[in-house]
């Protein structure tokens, strides 16, 4: 489903070359649930961004199915995200001036759905995450847990095959964090592929597979079965 082939990313920082990712090769089959762990600055988010077509590698290839993501134009990658990928952000990234319902409508609008269909789908998704009574609430009128659930509903709007989550429980209390992980497990059971960056060992344990990064290198793959590449 998702594949990285010898992917490296380096930055220039004050005249020094910093390697954010160093020769990463991974293969994530359809339906996998991968957690990516490692200390800050180890390259977790870089890896996630690259899988999501948001950050081009310095070398190597990233593939979604048979499509080499970075051989597409930036608009081509936007279309690919719209059709295949759902993002969950640590800070939820809800649009502050839109209601919960409207936030969930955004991906549907971007996909060209008509207003009636947008509203019906968004309402049913918010019902699914238990926010059917908060449709017209703006993000500031919701608790952080509720905000993350709105973000989950928005992520599901276009029925993505791949879910990329960046610290989805990072800002949540343990109970709400557990609720979010349960949702992700549920989505995974539906057949969606999930890659989740996390600092939370408990959350990481809930994944089927754990990739450990240090200094931009994948140093461990906990399942060790599907694909292992230790640089």
């Amino acid at each position: 489903m998702l594949r990285m082939e010898e992917v490296s990313k380096s930055y220039q920082h004050r005249g020094q070359v910093v390697k954010a990712l160093d020769g990463a090769t991974i293969d994530i089959p359809r339906g996998d649930f991968v957690s990516v762990v490692g200390p800050s600055g180890s390259g977790k988010s870089t890896l996630l961004l690259m899988l999501g077509g948001m950050l081009s590698p310095s070398s190597g290839r990233v593939l979604l199915g048979d499509e080499s993501i970075y051989d597409l134009t930036s608009d081509g990658r936007a279309r690919l995200r719209k059709e295949n990928i759902g993002f969950v952000f640590q800070t939820f990234n809800l649009v502050p001036y839109l209601t919960a319902l409207e936030n969930v409508q955004i991906p549907l609008y971007l996909a060209g759905a008509d207003e009636k269909a947008q509203e019906e789908t968004a309402t049913s998704l918010l019902n699914r995450v238990g926010l059917g009574d908060r449709l017209d609430h703006k993000p500031t009128e919701l608790s952080v847990g509720q905000q993350q659930r709105v973000a989950l509903a928005r992520m599901l709007a276009n029925d993505p095959a791949v879910i990329l989550a960046d610290e989805p429980t990072g800002n949540l209390d343990p109970e709400t964090a557990d609720q979010v992980i349960r949702f992700l497990e549920e989505f995974n059971e539906e057949g969606r592929t999930i890659v989740m960056v996390t600092h939370d060992p408990k959350a990481a344990q809930r994944a089927k597979r754990t990739l450990k990064l240090r200094d931009g290198k994948i140093i461990a793959d906990a399942s060790g079965q599907r694909s292992l590449h230790v640089a």
Partner: peptide, 14 residues
């Protein structure tokens, strides 16, 4: 950040 979010959700530059 908001523009980036829209792009992450699939908004094209146009």
């Amino acid at each position: 950040r908001e523009i980036g979010t829209l792009m992450a959700l699939g908004a094209e530059s146009g």
